[in-house]
Amino acid sequence: MPLLNVTGLSVTLSTADGAARAVRDMNFSLEKGETLGIVGESGCGKSITALALMGLLPERSETTGKIEFNGENLLQKPETEMCALRGNRMAMIFQEPMTSLNPVHTIGRQVMEPLRLHKNMTRAEAKAEAVRLLDRVGIPNPQERLGNYPHQLSGGQRQRVMIAMALSCSPDILIADEPTTALDVTIQDQILELIQSLVREEDMALILISHDLGVISENTDRIMVMYGGAAVETGPTETFFEALSHPYSQGLFAAMPKLGMGRTSRLMTIPGVVPDLINLPSGCTFTDRCPLATAECRNSAPPLRQLTAGHNVACYHLDKARTMKAEGLFA
């Protein structure tokens, strides 16, 4: 039994302009200690997927499908049981370290909170544990730092505090939603490395979300590319780039700066804009931006099909896409 098994997950958000289908029919599973990378443009539904797993979607939303965690469907769990899981068995790190900590409480109090809540620690125990955690995530002088307020810390340090908080109860799964996007480039690698080493140490499962394929390719076992609220390509990281097929994934890959790339060579961009989630086209959502789109693509959405072992793609024109490569597709 996998640690996490998501089947047919769909999320519909009600907005002022109508129902937005932010996530559609997502399927994936995660073993203990495995890391999954979710990648896609901003607005493709990565955060909504993550929040759905945590059960923290906005009130005006509807979630269907199944999220099985240790064999139990989270979507059918009452709120009190979800509270007992959150921060305890499953934890999350957010994109904005600057605003994700409560400005009026000390960081000590905020790191101690889940320990007191889930582990029933006394104040003294929680304090000692908080010092150990802050030390582990690389905050110097943790003892004195406990009394500091978030505004006294830099962005990188705040994200370290967020990591300490998320890992305080040694969860089974950690969801990191663009943990480095808001940080300085110089600090990004440090934070990613920290997450990696902690996850390995504790044998945790990790879902790493990013809009940067580079970040994902270096830090995960498996990759899932999302577009317009659905997975378009997924496979093992090791062979992912050889098997890369979907026109969108290829475009995304071509848009990624690579080692040894000359200063003069231009990064590729995919023309067009992300689909309107309220009035989704009936067929493949990438049709409007895809150079290979045909009537078939417009009429019905292509299902995920297995290409090689563990590598699945949702596209009708795989062979053509593979031979043309990104340069040919988006010339």
């Binding site: 945590m54 509270c83 957010f94």
Partner: peptide, 9 residues
């Protein structure tokens, strides 16, 4: 949202 993610009701 962070507080909710920690498990607070």
């Amino acid at each position: 949202r962070t507080a909710r993610a920690k498990g607070l009701s």
